[in-house]
Design a protein around this nucleic acid. Structure first.
Lengths: 236, 236
DNA sequence: ACCTGAACACCGTTCAAGT
DNA sequence: ACCTGAACACCGTTCAAGT
């Protein structure tokens, strides 16, 4: 993490010139990840990046064409981490599917600020292809025709991505706002007038929290159950 | 749409003073929707809003505390439109669930720029409550316990929201970039080396397009099938 | 009370200048 | 070739001034 800034550790941000090759895409992406994690997506500016790197803000432009390209790099890094977190495939395609889903979901929550914006930016990176290959492998092992495997891969993968991005967006709120938000939300549901909202009022005290990790788990179970049922119907 | 600017129709943007009560939350939200639809979310600035309204950019601050509050207003308006688009409930809870899902999805696609950011901003508006009531009603009619109804409501509703936001994000790209993006994406998948990606390569020619409306429809069918199976297991 | 004018801090981006 | 300095257009927001 630390570069060799052994000079005057006290007055850290003293004006100095960076050695020639001290910046690279990898180093910049690592700094960007740190900032996004710490200050959220809004905190990720060229100024902050410069400060974090001990470089001039515009030095980044030598390595990324613009902010959008930097963003794509962050998304790709997230894909890489998700891929690295995957376990080995087993002989149980359904269990593998669940494991894929939960690995991706966890990485999204770990890098919530980046995760929340992946919806818009499908990355087309090497790492994404490898993850797709794993999904498709599960669907073919389930016994689907190629056409069905293609369709169910897309549906399941996009479902995992979309739901993970949603959870990431909530997790990316700073702790105080998030706590206040969840609290206000819960109170409003508890006090809904039963005459107007009979069904909601009846079950309001049983509503799982928005950030209950059981929600995603339940959604994955439902999806896999339905896919398994289709696979059995096909082979039967 | 047009206000009564009957003076000098040729030199439209001439400097003039707005009458006292010409601005309101409704009028501003309508203008904001128009701009977001036409120029995307990036185009929605206070300057653009001022131009669209024929008012000073900062006049909006009299009606909305800041841009975030304006955003929440847009999300609420989207909820209102989704609610208005809902058909009447029938005696078939599963069909009602599907109808809810597709109504919401369609409104998200129609207002793609707003829809793509709903993930982060759960609105807690009157209109949202009414939509929730419809979802919960379906789950209770399915015969679930209150606890199960609460869980499945949350999972299904969040799934619909998340997937709709994902589709909206794609739809919100300007047509040229979107076309180029989809094309590049398809080509890359068609030319994946089969030695490295055997499963993906085998089904690549059958992959449904990212913006194929059949994807969401298939996802909804899977979800409802699984929920119906659970309901039957409970009652049997 | 509602809208305008002027000003401020900040941000992404460009481009010429340093080494 | 890589980093710095200065500058530009634009954006959200504040606040005093008009009517």
């Amino acid at each position: 993490m630390e570069t060799d800034q052994t000079t005057t550790p006290g007055r850290a941000a003293a004006k100095r010139r960076l050695p020639r090759g001290s910046l690279s895409r990898e180093i910049i992406l690592a700094a960007a990840t740190t900032i996004a994690q710490r200050d959220g997506l809004d905190g990720l500016t060229f100024q902050a990046l410069g400060a974090e790197l001990g470089a001039h803000p515009t030095a980044v432009y030598r390595h990324f064409r613009d902010k959008d390209e930097l963003t794509l790099g962050l998304v790709d890094a997230l894909n890489a981490e998700a891929l690295a977190a995957l376990g080995e495939p087993t002989e149980d395609w359904a269990a593998d599917l669940a494991q894929l889903a939960h690995s991706i979901h966890q990485v999204f929550l770990r890098h919530a600020a980046v995760g929340q914006m992946i919806a818009a930016r499908t990355a087309r990176s090497e790492h994404e292809f490898r993850i797709v290959e794993r999904f498709v492998s599960c669907m073919r092992r389930a016994g689907f025709s190629d056409g069905d495997a293609a369709r169910y891969y897309r549906v399941f993968a996009d479902f995992v991505l979309a739901y993970s991005a949603l959870d990431a967006a909530l997790a990316a709120l700073d702790p105080d706002t998030r706590r206040a938000d969840l609290r206000a939300w819960q109170i409003e549901y508890q006090t809904l007038p039963p005459e107007v909202y009979p069904n909601t009022a009846a079950i309001a005290h049983l509503l799982p929290a928005l950030d209950d990790p059981g929600n995603f788990a339940a959604a994955v179970d439902l999806m896999i159950d339905a896919i398994r049922a289709r696979a059995q119907a096909n082979s039967g």
